[in-house]
């Protein structure tokens, strides 16, 4: 039984002035599913994530979690940003413990445990300023995990990292996802990353789902694998706009 939230988005609308970003966006993320959302810049994928995080409000439509309004589940939703957004004036362990309520000793134990999960238990007393970019993102991941989220939102969290660190982070995210069994929504512009991590890759274009591609490759996934490459190629082709235009034709059969 999955610990994740079952998310339904129905007919979501969001426009900024005259610019329509999301126009009747509808999707379903099953509990415990890992969904990646890819698309060109400005396609609405980040807006979608901000709506899910409650950082922005839709102008129409419904966001539901387990058949109740998503807004009731704020405590179960955590987000990892593009930049780690650690408080530079708090030690690593204090950053992880941010927003936890309760007795000091218990909070600290939880924070150290979360740091241990991301392999940074020995850096608990450092200032964030002394960590590398990859380490900072791992701390940010620990900070999200410590709240036992049932929906984890990932807003291009690895965009600024070097290739090797990214692959390490992929493994780490995959591991904690399979351990904690939360629902994960990853926004990324890297199709390879999406195919490596997700159960489903959604390609968003003009505020709608243009392609819903299931990824049934066994984990951990091998990027050198031909099936991997074929899937990555398919999404990429669609993203770049070559190939047939009809959406229904391209909807992959699971």
């Amino acid at each position: 039984m999955s610990n994740g939230l079952d998310i339904r988005l129905a007919d979501i609308r969001r426009h900024f002035g005259a610019r329509v970003v999301l126009d009747g966006f509808t999707a379903h993320f099953a509990a415990g599913e890992f969904v990646a959302i890819v698309g060109r810049s400005g396609c609405g994928k980040s807006t979608l994530l901000r709506l899910l995080a409650g950082l922005d409000a839709a102008q129409g439509g419904r966001l539901e979690a387990d058949a109740a309004p998503l807004a009731d589940s704020r405590e179960d939703v955590r987000i990892m940003y593009q930049d780690a957004r650690l408080l530079p004036w708090r030690k690593v362990a204090e950053n992880v413990a941010l927003g936890l309520q309760g007795e000091r000793g218990r909070i600290r134990a939880l924070a150290l445990d979360a740091l241990d999960r991301v392999g940074l238990a020995d850096r608990a007393e450092e200032w964030p300023g002394n960590l590398s970019g990859g380490q900072r993102q791992r701390v940010a991941l620990a900070r999200a995990l410590v709240h036992r989220p049932r929906l984890l939102l990932l807003d291009e969290p690895l965009g600024a990292l070097d290739a090797l660190t990214r692959i390490e982070m992929h493994r780490l995210i995959e591991r904690v996802w399979s351990e904690h069994q939360f629902t994960a929504v990853l926004v990324t512009h890297d199709v390879g990353e999406a195919v490596a991590l997700a159960d489903r890759v959604l390609l968003v274009e003009d505020g709608r789902i243009a392609l819903d591609q299931r990824v049934d490759l066994p984990r951990p996934r091998d990027r050198g694998d031909t099936a991997f490459a074929r899937l990555e190629g398919r999404v990429l082709h669609r993203l770049l706009g070559d190939g047939a235009a009809d959406r229904e034709d391209l909807r992959a059969v699971a």
Partner: peptide, 26 residues
């Protein structure tokens, strides 16, 4: 960014001020 992060991690009012705003302004 940090204020938004603090809010999304459940900090409000006095706590947000103590953890994020005041140290940032210090």
């Amino acid at each position: 960014d940090l204020i938004e992060m603090g809010r999304s991690y459940g900090l409000k009012g006095g706590e947000l001020f103590r953890e994020v705003v005041l140290p940032g302004a210090l």
